[in-house]
């Protein structure tokens, strides 16, 4: 299935409570070398055919306008995966 993958992360300077909770659990488990965890989202857009450049541009727009909120998140990656 041809896909476009969109990856969204909470902004670097914002507290990520979910990541912090996971980091605390990992450190309790003895993984002292892991200093921090941040949790984002991977969103797959599925296509019937291999996405064109126009599809990729459209997906980037969708990622910026709807799949992320620029106040709290950054789109870190939008790529075609065949």
């Amino acid at each position: 299935m041809p896909k476009i993958i969109v990856e969204v992360m909470p902004k670097a300077d914002l507290l990520d409570p979910a990541g912090k909770a996971v980091a605390n659990a990992l450190q309790r488990k003895g993984n002292a070398e892991i200093t921090n965890v941040r949790i984002g989202k991977r969103i797959e857009l599925h296509y019937a055919n291999t996405p064109t450049d126009a599809d990729l541009q459209a997906a980037k727009q969708i990622a910026a306008d709807f799949l992320s909120n620029g106040v709290i998140e950054d789109v870190v990656n939008v790529i075609v995966e065949n």
Binding site: P10, L15, P17, A18, N69, V71, I72
Partner: peptide
């Protein structure tokens, strides 16, 4: 906020 009628964003409570 998501409709851009008001600015900013709302995130998970600081205390989780």
């Amino acid at each position: 906020v998501e409709s851009h009628l008001l600015p900013g964003g709302l995130i998970r409570n600081e205390n989780q």
